[in-house]
Amino acid sequence: MDLPLDSGVDNIEVDPKTGDLWIGSHPKINQIIAYDKSMGKTLSPSQVLRVKFKDGKLSDAVEVFLDKGKRIAASTVASVYKKRLLIGSLGGPPMLCDMVYIEP
């Protein structure tokens, strides 16, 4: 299965229970560069992707979080624990979210 990800992947965490990958990502590379150069004075979108595997092969990629950079800017990492998503940011405070979705 071909799953192109049009985003700037930053850090990847592996869920020890499921093997899913949780990825903090930058959907607009030019904005993360401007954000870094301005020391956080511009907006930079945040994105979290979940990549699933089945029988050792890539099976699905889902965008589980997207923000223009107002709630959390420049996401760098994401991790899940007990239906809560923790998103880390470049130079800003982390964000903790309750996850509300139904597994396929």
Rank of each mutant, 00 (worst) to 15 (best):
N11K: 14
N11G: 01
I12R: 03
I12Y: 00
I12M: 02
I12C: 02
E13A: 11
V14L: 10
D15H: 09
P16I: 02
T18P: 10
T18A: 05
T18S: 13
D20V: 04
L21V: 00
W22G: 02
I23F: 03
G24N: 03
S25T: 11
H26E: 08
H26D: 06
H26I: 01
P27G: 05
P27D: 04
P27V: 03
K28I: 15
I29Q: 13
I29D: 01
N30E: 15
Q31N: 12
I32K: 11
I33F: 10
I33M: 12
I33S: 05
A34C: 03
Y35G: 00
Y35A: 04
D36T: 15
D36L: 13
S38V: 04
S38M: 03
S38W: 05
M39Q: 15
M39V: 10
G40C: 02
G40P: 06
T42K: 12
T42H: 02
T42L: 06
L43Q: 14
L43S: 11
S46Q: 07
S46N: 05
S46W: 04
S46V: 09
S46I: 03
S46P: 10
Q47R: 10
V48T: 14
V48G: 09
L49T: 12
L49F: 13
R50V: 13
V51M: 12
K52N: 02
F53R: 08
F53P: 11
K54M: 06
G56M: 03
G56P: 07
K57V: 09
L58D: 06
L58N: 05
L58I: 14
L58F: 06
L58R: 11
S59W: 07
S59Q: 10
A61Q: 05
A61I: 09
A61P: 11
A61H: 04
V62H: 15
V64Q: 08
V64I: 15
F65S: 00
L66C: 00
D67E: 13
G69R: 08
G69E: 07
S75N: 08
T76N: 11
T76S: 15
T76L: 13
V77I: 13
A78I: 02
A78S: 08
S79Q: 08
S79F: 13
Y81Q: 10
K82G: 00
K83L: 11
K83I: 10
K83R: 14
K83M: 08
K83E: 15
R84V: 11
L85K: 11
L85M: 09
L86G: 02
I87Y: 11
I87N: 01
G88V: 02
G88Q: 02
G91N: 04
G92V: 00
P93D: 00
P93S: 08
P94R: 01
L96E: 05
